[in-house]
Each structure stands twice: as structure tokens, then as C-alpha cells.
Design a protein around this nucleic acid. Structure first.
Lengths: 185, 185
DNA sequence: ACACTCCCTCTACGCCTGTAGTAGTTGGTA
DNA sequence: TACCAACTACTACAGGCGTAGAGGGAGTGT
């Protein structure tokens, strides 16, 4: 794997574990198990490091999106798909999610991050909008934006908010059923 | 006003403007317009500063909650109340909101923050649960948690996510109507 | 007038950070 | 083999950080 990708992955891990404040060149070197100075050679500035994180995350997400998602042809199937995604977010992918929120907050102050972050977000929402349109939902674009935002909110609540410790799968399904119903009624 | 409160308010402002990384004793002194060293005298460690932010935000929020919120006796009124709150979040209160997310992310790594943060969240959710119960909604407690999480997600999307630039009030009302319907149907 | 106490300001210190630059190493080319 | 270019590892340095503690000044009781 490309050195840059290894470093970007390490940076994402550091971001999730230690936050934006802990993201230093030296911490990334250590996390990647590479010699001190390596990350500062590949990404001369801290801003470059942050951008690398965003781009790496975008690449991984789009890649996963491309490799087969089952078609959703009913509201029930949509609920199941959402449960599966959010369930994965709060368990296996929680590192990536935490890192994304750190980056989102950072993008508030760094326009260069905002662009890439928003482009990926738009791609995902288009996909969801297509699905909603296929189900005959009115105003699918707006509804897709809202649905994604709400699922994100639910996940945030689980991982960083008042909702910890995580509820079980059945609870998650109940919550998501309510949300999806609101957007598909 | 108590010196500590002035400093905590300044720290919250710094947090919103410069992020967790920008929150330093010296930055807080500058933001508060006080002599260098002041914040480090009142809050000897950075962790103490962070805790002061959480407590100050909690105090302010509970205070506002106590000073009259109009009674909500219909679903339409609930929608309007939510629109008003979220509308305020993304405009006048965006500083506080940004700071809260920074602190929430930080609380992932600092158990001492988690306690206070969660207690306030619980108080708010109880209030919402009472309102939902008053409307005859089933499982009001769970629904209140989810509703708050979703509204938070919507706001995050506006301020730090893919939803920027902010939509107008009518768009916000449409989105919230969908969300609330899901939880009250 | 004096001493004492408390509150605040300022300074000092060692540590860590971002970033640039130097030195070394590898692999290809003639 | 001798040379060169590109890549990588390491070092250096100025500046900023968290934190502790010394200094000073206002207020109070005697």
C-alpha cells in the first residue's frame, strides 16, 4: 500500500483516538509504526495532513459505495438497510465516524477541508435520494438530506452524546423505523 | 459577574472559534480581555478549564429551560417549538452548539466531562418526554431521546456538515415536520 | 502604623509542536 | 564500476504550551 495511504489511515486513527488536538506529525509516525519525520516529509504541513485524512476517507467511502449495495424496493427494506448501516457505524466503523466528526468541526474553520468533505456527502445523499425516489417519496432530495442528517444524529448520540451506553439492535431498529416513517409517509 | 464565569464564557467562545486545539490558557485570557495567567490561576489544568466549560453550559441551559417554555398541547405546536429551537441553534446559539460538539467529542476521551454532559442531556430529554407523553405518544422516553438526537443531527448538518449553506425557515419547518411526524404518528 | 492575609498578576521552566533542511540510501543508467 | 537522481530518515530550531510558584498590592483587624 502507498506510504501516503498508510500515513493517512494512521492519521485517521489518531484523530479518532486523541482528537484534533492529538493529531501531530509525531503521533502519526508512531501510530503508523514509521520513523519519526516520515509524516512530516509526506505532508509538510498539518493542514496537508488533515486534507489527506479527508481524501482518504472519501476514497474509502466511495469505494465501499461502489461495491454492491443491495437494491431497496420497500420501506421495510429501507429500514433494514439503515439499521445495518447505523449499526455498523456505532461498532466496527466508530473510529471512522469519530474522525469524520472531528474533521467536520475542523472544516468549519478550514475552507479547504469543506470542499472535499461536502462533495462526498453530496454523493451519498444523491444515492439515498435515488432510493427514496424509487419508493415514490415526494421531494426525495430534501428528504434524503434530512434522513442522512438524522441517522448521523442518532449515531452521534450513541457514540459521543447522551445516548451512551449503546442500546441493543432492537432499540435501534425501533428508532430508525420511526425516523424512516417520517420521511416516507 | 464571577471571574470564573467570565473565563468559562470566554473558553466556550474560544472552543467554538478555534476548536479544542485552540483552547489554551493564553487564548482564553486574551478572549476574556484579562491579564495573561488569569485563566491558568483559576483553572490550573486544561482539564479543569474543559470542565468549567461543561458546567457553565449546563448552568446556562438549565436556567433557560427553567424560565418559561410555553406549554405544547398539539403536534403542530410541537413542530413550531422545534423549529424555533433549531432555528435559534443554527443562528444565535451556533457558538454554543459548536462548543458543545467539541466537548462531546472530547468527552469520549475524558470520563470526567461525560458525567456532567450526560446529566444535562438527560434533563432536557426528560422534559421532551413529558411533552410527548402529554400528547399521548407511546414510549415517550425513547422517542424523546430519538427526537433530540435527530434535531441535533439536523443542526450539525447545517453548521458543520454537508447541509451548508443554511436553508431558509420554510425548509427547516418542512424537515422538522417530517421528523416530528415520525415520532408522533 | 503595622502585620497579616488573600487575591491576582506575572514570570520561569521544561516539554512538545510545526516545519525546514541536511544527510544518507537506494536503484537505475552509462 | 562511477555517477546521478529521487526518495526517505533524521536533526535542528524557533515558537507555543501547560503548569507551578514567586511577587506585589489592596483590604482588614489591631
Amino acid at each position: 500500500m502507498d506510504r501516503r495511504d498508510v500515513l493517512a489511515d494512521a492519521a485517521i486513527a489518531v484523530l479518532a483516538e486523541a482528537g484534533s488536538r492529538g493529531l501531530t506529525h509525531r503521533a502519526v509516525d508512531a501510530a503508523a509504526g514509521l520513523a519519526e519525520g516520515t509524516s512530516s516529509y509526506y505532508f509538510r504541513t498539518r493542514s496537508a495532513l488533515l486534507q489527506a485524512c479527508v481524501e482518504r476517507m472519501a476514497a474509502r467511502t466511495l469505494e465501499e459505495m461502489a461495491s454492491g449495495t443491495p437494491a431497496v424496493t420497500s420501506v421495510d427494506a429501507l429500514v433494514e438497510a439503515c439499521v445495518a448501516i447505523v449499526g455498523r457505524w456505532v461498532t466496527k466503523d466508530q473510529e471512522r465516524l469519530l474522525a469524520r466528526w472531528e474533521l467536520a468541526l475542523e472544516s468549519t474553520r478550514r475552507p479547504e477541508l469543506e470542499t472535499a468533505l461536502r462533495a462526498t456527502g453530496a454523493r451519498i445523499r444523491e444515492r439515498v435520494a435515488d432510493t427514496l425516489a424509487g419508493l415514490g417519496v415526494a421531494k426525495p432530495r430534501q428528504r434524503a438530506d434530512d434522513l442522512v442528517a438524522c441517522l448521523d444524529g442518532l449515531a452521534f448520540d450513541q457514540l459521543a452524546g447522551a445516548g451512551r451506553p449503546p442500546r441493543d439492535d432492537a432499540g435501534l431498529r425501533a428508532s430508525i423505523t420511526d425516523v424512516v416513517r417520517g420521511f416516507t409517509a
